[in-house]
Design a protein around this nucleic acid. Structure first.
Lengths: 216, 216
DNA sequence: ACCTGAACACCGTTCAAGT
DNA sequence: ACCTGAACACCGTTCAAGT
């Protein structure tokens, strides 16, 4: 657990040839599979390499150490989620507060459940790996996007939009994780799909200041 | 990561003499400290033993393996939190819905922040360690307590109290964790203390069916 | 009874040797 | 250029030997 200086967690080299790119993809996919089946503790360089069909040495040509590989997997996943949020924000701007709340909530839920169903282990990766900068960056991009959304509600204004934005993101992220983490059954998902929108909507309406357009 | 059969995670023997009890306490405390400073990955049997001032062999007399030690630490912590919730439930029964919501929320927040400030690593322990039974037990005790509380609200009834209880617990646990996990600054805590009660109250009021006593 | 620490198997990482 | 796998240091766990 030495402190990672500079870009110590960055890939060692980018694949330049088709053969290499295929190798990296295989390693990447293998890492996710092993993480899912054996957990963070069970994720071994040997196991990833053998499942990817390469030798350990080859893996170390692309990732300077195990952590760099896991970091890359996490980065890729977070990028996917942020993109989903930013897309939802564009789609639901300039609507009623309740509409944009539901739109954002369901878009986030979809992104999570589609891409994440087995990648729960990534939470452990984020917790254990020096990922503060990466996470901070992703969080601020999400907050910026959500603030952009809320600012355009046609029927409400917020006194402290930064605070509300932050609280809403934490509500979304925390609740979804708390459920998916130890129960990905259809029942649990159904519960989220009905209750989470209610939570977000209720919170936003509670802290919003209605505007003249409200009575429309 | 072998499947834990039976009580494989239970302590090997209970301390019978004062000397032993002191040893176990020291090991326990050392584990928490190492977890805080070095994380889950950095938590080494050698490190825990040396910080506790005993040899590895001694540790293995009380805990059959590293996981059993971590399991015991987690169990102790969860017990503390459940007790806090159950105490709060007794204190706030038969009140207005908004009052009991705030009471429960702040009691939970207090329990978390007081005992947990450094023990964040326990989330990783719970995720990695075969703790499904333990967690399920704790969750159902919390849900039972919260349902007991909500059922006595003087101004509201719920059509599906199990669903609301579950959703409320997930909201509490998830949101608090999402904040504390990567930011235990006073600012973050202040945000939780103001916004979390609003979230819970707003959600409960949104799903509650008001009763005649409401207009009092 | 309780404690110790060398010894064994396994994992992360390197690097000389192969194609 | 890219790949391989034996070799080294370190961690979890055991157990013969100490008090």
């Amino acid at each position: 657990m030495p402190i990672a200086p500079d870009d110590a967690l960055k890939p060692r080299k980018r694949p330049r040839q088709a053969r290499s790119a295929a190798t990296v993809d295989a390693i990447f996919e293998a890492a996710i599979q092993v993480l899912r089946s054996d957990g963070f503790t069970g994720l071994t360089t040997t196991r990833v390499a053998s499942r990817a069909g390469v030798s350990v040495g080859t893996m170390y040509q692309y990732f300077p150490h195990k952590d760099a590989l896991l970091y890359a997997v996490l980065e890729d996943y977070l990028e996917y989620v942020v993109n989903a949020i930013e897309a939802a924000v564009e789609r639901f701007r300039h609507m009623l507060l309740a509409e944009m709340s539901d739109g954002l909530t369901l878009a986030y839920l979809d992104a999570k459940t589609r891409h994440m169903l087995g990648a729960q282990g990534l939470y452990v990766v984020a917790a254990e790996l020096e990922t503060d900068d990466l996470v901070a960056d992703v969080c601020s991009r999400c907050d910026a996007a959500i603030a952009r959304l809320l600012a355009t509600a046609t029927d409400a204004r917020f006194d402290d939009i930064a605070r509300v934005t932050h609280a809403l993101r934490v509500l979304l992220v925390g609740t979804v994780r708390a459920v998916l983490e130890n129960d990905v059954s259809p029942d649990a998902l159904a519960m989220l799909r009905t209750e989470l929108p209610v939570m977000c909507r209720a919170y936003l309406l509670a802290v919003a200041r209605p505007t003249e357009a409200q009575a429309v």
